[in-house]
Computed example of a mutant assay.
Amino acid sequence: MIKYLPYCVLLLLFCACDQPYRKINDREMEELAVQDTLVSNAKWMVLQAGESPQDKFPQLLVKTLQSDKCYLFNYDCELENSLTIRHYTLELILGPEEKRRKNGIWMYAEFYTEGTFPFQNKGTRFAVDSMPKSWNKKNPTREGMYYFEGNELKLFSEQSDKKFNEARKSGFYFIPNNGKLFDRIYLNGLD
């Protein structure tokens, strides 16, 4: 039993790093400079905090008022509304010629599996700024992930990395607005 303890500790550390936020203690909280209060209600406060009051890249800080816990979010998180924080998971890098970026990003994704069991390797190849030659319509602006099929863009799923990887469907995609995939973190689930 004891010989497996180091593996269990490593597994716990690996799983703990999977969240885009971390719980901070009172000492760490005191080291932050609060710049702005974004949300304040009976359950929590969402603050913008940085290393100094002039920090140009502040982070979100959530303080739960009932349990008195504080959570510091990564830089790739932003407040969506008073209940939800967006964690951007996949940002597709565009080249210097962003001709095809029209209120979003077109891309071609090819899902592949290489090798044989038990040595299989699964992955995705991306061609960003790739769009179908036959597309000449207006791009959608409604949030979501769109799949090109039959000369139409069909709302495929929510705009999340998880849904994109679950589908494993090769082809052209359009991701509107800022062209990023994200996951939602609901503040009710922090405690």
Rank of each mutant, 00 (worst) to 15 (best):
1 M>T: 01
1 M>Y: 00
1 M>K: 00
2 I>A: 04
5 L>I: 03
5 L>V: 02
8 C>D: 09
9 V>N: 03
9 V>K: 01
11 L>T: 00
11 L>M: 01
11 L>V: 01
12 L>H: 00
15 C>Q: 12
16 A>T: 10
17 C>T: 12
20 P>Q: 04
21 Y>K: 05
21 Y>Q: 04
22 R>W: 02
22 R>S: 06
23 K>R: 13
23 K>V: 09
24 I>C: 01
24 I>K: 04
24 I>H: 02
26 D>K: 15
27 R>N: 13
30 E>R: 06
32 L>Q: 08
32 L>P: 08
33 A>S: 12
39 V>K: 02
40 S>H: 09
40 S>Q: 12
43 K>M: 08
46 V>G: 02
48 Q>T: 15
51 E>P: 02
52 S>M: 11
54 Q>T: 13
54 Q>E: 15
56 K>M: 10
57 F>M: 15
59 Q>F: 05
60 L>Q: 11
62 V>N: 11
64 T>P: 07
67 S>F: 08
69 K>L: 08
70 C>Y: 10
71 Y>K: 04
73 F>C: 02
76 D>G: 10
78 E>L: 11
79 L>W: 03
80 E>Q: 08
82 S>H: 10
83 L>K: 13
83 L>D: 11
84 T>G: 05
90 L>N: 07
95 G>L: 08
96 P>G: 11
97 E>D: 15
98 E>G: 07
103 N>K: 15
104 G>L: 05
106 W>D: 05
107 M>G: 04
109 A>E: 04
111 F>R: 11
112 Y>L: 03
112 Y>N: 06
113 T>R: 10
114 E>C: 00
115 G>N: 03
117 F>A: 14
119 F>R: 13
119 F>T: 12
120 Q>C: 07
120 Q>L: 07
122 K>M: 11
123 G>W: 00
123 G>R: 00
124 T>Y: 09
124 T>H: 08
124 T>W: 06
125 R>E: 15
127 A>L: 11
129 D>A: 15
129 D>T: 14
130 S>I: 04
130 S>P: 01
131 M>V: 07
132 P>S: 12
133 K>G: 13
136 N>D: 14
137 K>A: 14
139 N>M: 05
140 P>F: 07
141 T>C: 09
141 T>A: 11
141 T>Q: 12
145 M>S: 01
147 Y>D: 03
149 E>W: 11
149 E>H: 14
151 N>Q: 10
151 N>S: 10
151 N>A: 09
153 L>Y: 14
155 L>S: 07
156 F>T: 02
156 F>Y: 05
157 S>K: 09
162 K>L: 07
164 F>G: 03
164 F>C: 05
165 N>P: 02
165 N>S: 09
166 E>P: 01
168 R>M: 09
170 S>K: 04
171 G>P: 02
172 F>P: 06
173 Y>T: 05
173 Y>E: 05
175 I>L: 07
175 I>V: 07
176 P>A: 05
178 N>F: 03
178 N>S: 03
178 N>G: 00
181 L>V: 03
183 D>N: 14
185 I>V: 12
186 Y>G: 05
187 L>V: 05
188 N>V: 08
189 G>E: 13
189 G>L: 12
190 L>S: 07
190 L>R: 07
